[in-house]
Design a binder for these strands. Structure first.
Lengths: 192, 192, 192, 192
DNA sequence: CATGAATGAGAATTCATTCAT
DNA sequence: CATGAATGAATTCTCATTCAT
C-alpha cells in the first residue's frame, strides 16, 4: 500500500529524469512522462501539482544524492592530495555510474525552470568543496591562484572525464583515465 | 532589395539565436522569433522551411564563425607553446565576446534537434585541433597521455574560463585569468 | 451513528448549497464540496450517485423548505389583504434570512441541471398561490387582469424587495421597505 | 476581406451568446463555441485572448446595444407618464425581441466572470434611469418612496413582463400585457 | 459506510505551419 | 517574397467518478 504509493511516485520521477535529460523541459510532455511511468495522466498531478514542481523536486532529490556520494570516504584520507583525488574520483564515478542523473544536473543547474529556492537549497554542498580548496591553498600545496579559478578548473576537469568515459566512440580504461586525469589537474594546480 | 532579403534572414537568425539560447528550442515559438526579428510569422517560413531547419542553419553558421575565429594568428606563432596559448586565448575570447553564440553552441551541440548531418559537417574543424595536439605529443612537449584525454581537458579548460569570466558574480581581470588558466593547463599537460 | 450519517449528508448539502450559489454548477468541483463538508471525495458519492443528483436533491429540499415557510400563518389572517400581505412578507423574509437558499433557487430554477421531474415535483406549491390570486380576483378585490400577469408582478415584486434589502450598498429599514413595497404592489393590483 | 474578419468575430460572439446563456460560463466549452461558430478552436483565441475576455467583450457589447435601445424616443414624449411608459415598453420590447441577449445580461450582470471594469463601464446608463425617477418624485407625480425602492420595483416589473411574454406556456397579447403591466406599476407608484 | 489514490476524458490555451491576398 | 488570419493537433492541468482497502 505504502509501497505502491512510493512506486508510482518513483516511477514518475524516473521517467521524468530520463525524458527531461534526453529532450529538455519543454520537449518533454507530461503525457509522455505518465506513459513511460505506466500511470494515468492525472496521477502525475496527484504527486506534483505542476510540471515545474516536478522538475524542481527531481532536481532537489538528484542533487541530494550527488551531494552525499561525493563526500564518501574523504574524511578517511589523510593527505590533502588523497582527499582531493578521492573527491575527483567520487564525482567522476558518480557521473559515470548515474549518467542520466549526471546529465540532468548538468543541463538544469542553470535552467530557468529550477527555482531560485531549489537552487539555493542545493548550493550548500558547494561550501564544502570551497573549504577544501581554500585549505589546499592555505597550506601551500595548491598554488595561490584565485580560488574560483582553481575550483572551476577542477570541476570542469571532472566533467571532461565523465564525458570522455561515457563517450560511446571511445573505449579506454576508466580507472586509468581517472588517475591520469587527476595527475594532469594535480600537476596543473600545484606546478611551478 | 537583395540587401533587404539578407537583412530579414539575418534578423530572423539573430532573434532566433538569442531566444533559443535563453529559452531553449521548445521554449521559443516561431511567432516570437518573427516578432523580435520584425517580420511576419509567414516570412520566417520563406527562409527556413521548418523550425528544425532554422536551428540547424543557425548551428551551422555559428559553428563556422567559431571555427574561423579560433584559427586566427596561430600560423604566425612559432613555438608550440605559443600556438597552444594562442588557441586557448582565441577560444576563450570568442566565448567571452560572443556569449550568446557560445552558449548556443554549448547548449545545442548535443541536442536532438541538431541533425547528425549538421553535426558531422561541423566536426571537420576538430581535425585541426587534433593535429595540433598530436604534434605536441609527437614532439615530446606534451606528455604522452591518450590524445582524447589531453584534448578534452584542454577544451573543458576553455569552458571553465569562459564561464568564470562571464559569471556576473565574479569580477576578476580577464587577461590575467586567461594567462593563469593557461599556465595551469600547460603545467598539467606537460608536468612530470 | 445514524446521527453521523445525517451529519455527513447534511454537511455535504450545506457545502454544496454555498458553493453552487457562489460559483455555479460547473464552477464547483465535487472535490471542493467534499473538502468544505469535511468528508472524503468518495463519501459524497455514497449519498449522491452523481453531481447532478446532488443538485437536484438540494433543489428539491430547499424548495420544500421555502414552500413550507411561505404558508406560515396565512390561514390565521382573515382579510384577503392581510393574507396577501402575510404571503408577501413571508417570501421576502425567507429570502432575506436564507440568502443562500434564496439565491440558489433563483439561480437554478431555470437551469438545465435541474431535471424536469424535479421541477414538476416542486411546482405543486404554485397551485396554492394561484388559488389565492384567483380568489382575490373573484371576490373583486384584485382588479381583473390575467391571473398570470398579477402573479408574475407579485412574485417579481418580492424578488425586487429581497435584492434591495440584501444589497450591501443599500441600508434601509427592512420592515419599512417590505410594508412600502407591499403598498405599491397592492395599489397597483387594486388601483382604478 | 475585412468583411470575413468581421464575420468570424461576429460568428464567435453569436455562438458564445447563445451557449453562455443556455449553459452558463463553465458549462460552455470554447471548443463548442468554435464549433457552433464554424471556426477552428484556435481562431477563437485570435480574437479573444481568453475565455474571460470573450464573455467580457460580449457583455460590453450587448449591454451597449441594450443601453441604446432603451433610450429611443423618450425625449420625444412630453408628459412624465409617457416618458416612463415609453421606457417601460422599450425595455420589455428589447427583451422580447432579443431574448438571448436579455437572458445573457440577466444571468451575467452579477457574475464573477464580468470584471469590475466592464461592469462599471456599463453602469453609466443607470444614471439616466435614476435621473428620470428622481425627476418624477421631485415633481410630485411619483409618490415619495425611497428612489431605490421605486426603481427596483419598476425594473423587476419589466422583468416580470418579459418572462411572461416569453413563457412558451402562456400566449397572451403582448401589447395588451405591456400596457396592463404599466398600468399596474403606474398605479402602484403613484397611488394614494 | 468511509477513505483517498487512481483514472482518463475533457477543458483552455499554444503554436508550427499554410495559404489567400 | 511579405503578410498575418486560420488551422487543428498537441499541451498542461482539472475533475467526476471508481474501487481496493
Amino acid at each position: 500500500m505504502d509501497q505502491q504509493v512510493k512506486d508510482k511516485k518513483a516511477a514518475i520521477m524516473d521517467a521524468a529524469l530520463k525524458l527531461f535529460t534526453e529532450r529538455g523541459f519543454h520537449g518533454t510532455s507530461t503525457a509522455q512522462i505518465s506513459k513511460d511511468a505506466g500511470v494515468a495522466t492525472g496521477t502525475l498531478f496527484n504527486y506534483f501539482p505542476t510540471k515545474e514542481n516536478l522538475i524542481n523536486s527531481l532536481y532537489f532529490e538528484v542533487k541530494g544524492r550527488l551531494s552525499r556520494s561525493i563526500r564518501v570516504g574523504i574524511d578517511e584520507e589523510v593527505s590533502f592530495q588523497d582527499k582531493l583525488r578521492r573527491l575527483w574520483s567520487n564525482i567522476i564515478k558518480w557521473g559515470v555510474n548515474s549518467p542520466e542523473e549526471y546529465l540532468f544536473v548538468e543541463q538544469f543547474c542553470s535552467s530557468p525552470y529550477i527555482t531560485k529556492i531549489t537552487r539555493e537549497e542545493v548550493m550548500k554542498e558547494y561550501i564544502f568543496l570551497n573549504e577544501l580548496v581554500q585549505e589546499g591553498i592555505a597550506s601551500g600545496v595548491l598554488k595561490d591562484y584565485t580560488p574560483e579559478l582553481t575550483m572551476t578548473i577542477f570541476f570542469h576537469g571532472t566533467k571532461a572525464l565523465v564525458n570522455l568515459i561515457l563517450d560511446p566512440n571511445v573505449s579506454l580504461d576508466a580507472e586509468e583515465l581517472i588517475e591520469n586525469g587527476f595527475r594532469i589537474i594535480w600537476n596543473g594546480l600545484t606546478g611551478k
